[in-house]
């Protein structure tokens, strides 16, 4: 499989990179670890005219800085770096779990980045295929067409799903992202950054770069956990996943955020299912009730767009949610 032709640029500074991107706009793509971008390019799903490599920007954009009341995680931080940062390993074990769950150690752990994971494309069993596979098939919504193959005749939109493990956990942690261009900077919560549209999953301008992830300082009482269901113990994208972040104060749940992966074009934040938990004790019954509600809320999103039956995936929602909530609650109370 050869890559299509493109130009290759490797700016030496963030400022230079942003200037180049302003010039090329949507014709150019950022290249960080390349583990998402280049597979799609090989399959002919994208054909940028230029790739702008971020490889020289690591000094500027990799690593964690602790600020007064938040943390800034550079977009170029590799997954391995992220999960090895003492603060993340100690206080955000859910994020460490999510990073560790991505791919495999020698696959992308050491070169793939947090920024790339957040900006990776949504996926679908009928989309992430070769040109030979698609020959003779009408282009789907995500390719600019007007059908969704797994969605069937009545489908009116793309039903690809966000399968970025890191994104799901960061959504649960209530993270924001900094988007920078040559002319300015925006900060968006992940709820705003992820559009929920498979055709264009992220709200990011053609001249913008995701430079940082902003996280609240964890502090005592916060527990986080990431539970991933995949076919194999490594390499595979999630069939379903749940990221949970829970704060427990005085034995009662002060906040609970839960995001599902691999069901919707964005990490699916289940607000209403978690609401009843507020002010309650994290008992197994309470958590199980919230998990059951999560299952009902997620049900409409399940279609046959993965390699496992939608019916099974639907049944698994309460299971992964309960497991994620239990582990987060236990960690919030000092457990592991």
């Amino acid at each position: 499989m050869s890559l299509p032709h493109f130009q290759y640029l490797a700016p030496l500074s963030l400022a230079e990179a942003l200037e180049q991107k302003a010039l090329w706009g949507g014709q150019a793509a950022w290249l960080s670890g390349g583990s998402d971008l280049l597979t799609r390019a090989k399959q002919g799903l994208v054909s940028p005219e230029a790739l702008i490599s971020l490889k020289h920007l690591s000094p500027e954009l990799a690593g964690l800085s602790e600020e007064a009341n938040h943390l800034r995680l550079g977009a170029q931080t590799t997954l391995h770096q992220a999960l090895s940062l003492p603060l993340i390993a100690r206080e955000l074990p859910g994020l460490a779990e999510a990073c560790a769950a991505i791919g495999a150690p020698t696959l992308q752990q050491r070169v793939a980045t947090v920024g790339g994971n957040l900006c990776a494309q949504t996926r679908c069993l009928h989309y992430n295929q070769s040109a030979l596979w698609r020959a003779g098939l009408a282009p789907c919504f995500k390719l600019g067409g007007e059908v969704c193959h797994p969605g069937g005749a009545g489908a009116d939109r793309c039903r690809s799903t966000c399968q970025s493990d890191g994104a799901v956990m960061l959504m649960a942690l209530g993270a924001s992202v900094v988007l920078q261009s040559a002319t300015g900077q925006r900060t968006l919560t992940l709820s705003d950054f992820f559009t929920g549209q498979g055709e264009r999953p992220q709200d990011i301008g053609p001249d913008e770069m995701l430079t940082h992830v902003i996280l609240e300082r964890p502090g005592p009482g916060l527990g986080s956990a990431y539970v991933k269901m995949a076919s194999r113990g490594a390499v595979d994208f999630p069939l379903l996943s749940a990221g949970a972040a829970m704060r427990i104060e005085g034995g009662l749940i002060a906040s609970a955020r839960l995001a599902l992966g691999a069901v919707f074009a964005a990490p699916l934040l289940l607000k209403t299912a978690m609401e009843p938990l507020l002010g309650q004790a994290p008992t197994p019954e309470n958590l199980a009730q919230a998990a059951a509600q999560a299952g009902r809320d997620a049900a409409p999103f399940m279609i046959e767009n993965h390699s496992t039956p939608a019916a099974w995936r639907a049944q698994m929602v309460p299971v992964v949610v309960a497991r994620a909530l239990e582990r987060a609650a236990s960690r919030a109370q000092g457990g592991i």
Binding site: L3, Y8, A10, L31, G34, T39, Q108, R110, V111
Partner: peptide
């Protein structure tokens, strides 16, 4: 010293 998939690495990234 870092493992990389040579099939998913542009040669120029190893410049």
């Amino acid at each position: 010293g870092q493992p990389r998939r040579a099939c998913l690495t542009l040669a120029l990234e190893a410049q």
